[in-house]
Design a protein around this nucleic acid. Structure first.
Lengths: 204, 204
DNA sequence: TATACTTACGAGTAACTTACGAGTATAATT
DNA sequence: AATTATACTCGTAAGTTACTCGTAAGTATA
């Protein structure tokens, strides 16, 4: 596959970010505004060019035009970002951000179902996750035993190790100083995703 | 193959670094600015010379642009990886690995001077870094006040916040439960790098 | 119909590469 | 002391592409 020029990369990157953030491909005009062009023709030139090179495909949705253009390869750019969806703090539901930013992650974590949360407070310290840390999770409703999950119990969010038993589900901390939680059938329990990665930036 | 003059080597190195960092060969102008030339002709002289000597080739893609490629590319990777240089544990020198692996990092951390260490033991916990965590640091001999540094004191490695004072250097932990270390002039003290990032993988 | 969007085309400009002529500074050769 | 050679450096100008614009026509939905 041919190398992409910086401008083509930027274009592809924009589409990827937009799609990740809004769950929908951008219209030509949104691209035009977002990238500072003055003409839709320019947008179309990019789409055509990138399609010819196999980086983009404009598969039309079944019924119409609006959400049509879409990414072909997840990884055509050197940038690897995921949307930062919100804050998570034990004892509270996940707090969503209005305008999701994006944050850099290792390219191997790029996946449409992955997302980033920032941890508020030291309440996840039993999982060795501190105030201000970021976590990458994959959206899923189920988990395998032993995986650490982003869980919601009665509206409260937490990170715990998922251990299903025959009679109930247990949530284990990674730190023996903290207690095991037993989920009762009457509890409102959801798995929101499984933990893949955590990171912290220094230097601001 | 002829030996390279220092300036030619510097030129070649620049191209390699640029290409690794941006996944894209530099344009003549970027080289000019990056290397402090005042003329594109100078850049072209280098390119021509190095091409004649077989160190560089300008394979044109469909577009002739940004086509500089090193002949002896050891490392033309599209992924973002840094070398895992070894293990760090407080109270011991840094233990280098014989065959450095590479690990995935966010692309923004790609830099020729950056490297990765894995933390052994819970001795860095005052910096909120746990057993098994990975850290990304930038190799440097100096640091600014407030930065967290990979430091060697009398052969022992540690992570601490660098706080130079008028009479001596202090190393502060990030956790108030741990003591401040004062570096005396007679101590063998080196800064090995500054901490940029830390991360931990789940799922295996 | 109107609205919201995509596609096509001709023409222009900006971004890059390449070529060429000349200049400098140092050291080696005559 | 004068020349020659080597290793660079500068400036400009020509040649290609990559990219941009504006406008017009097309297609679907309501």
């Amino acid at each position: 596959m041919k190398p992409l020029s910086p401008k083509l990369k930027r274009f592809l990157d924009f589409i990827q970010r937009f799609t990740l953030s809004f769950d929908q491909a951008p219209s030509y005009e949104e691209i035009m505004v977002g990238l500072g062009f003055d003409s839709l023709g320019t947008v179309n030139w990019y789409v055509k060019t990138l399609e010819e090179e196999g980086h983009l495909s404009r598969i039309k949705g079944p019924n119409g035009k609006r959400a049509l253009t879409l990414i072909h390869k997840e990884h055509a750019t050197t940038t690897a970002r995921l949307p930062l969806l919100g804050l998570i703090a034990a004892g509270e539901p996940i707090e969503a951000l209005e305008n999701p930013e994006v944050v850099d992650v290792p390219p191997s974590l790029l996946h449409p179902d992955n997302y980033v949360l920032q941890v508020k407070g030291d309440s996840m310290i039993d999982e060795k996750i501190h105030d201000g840390d970021f976590i990458v999770a994959r959206k899923t409703k189920t988990a395998r035993s032993g995986q650490i999950v982003v869980a919601l119990i009665n509206g409260e969010a937490t990170l715990k190790c998922y251990v299903p038993k025959t009679d109930c589900i247990e949530l284990h901390p990674r730190n023996p100083n903290f207690p095991v939680i037993k989920v009762n059938p009457q509890d409102d329990f959801h798995i929101n995703g499984v933990l893949l990665y955590s990171f912290r930036n220094y230097l601001n």
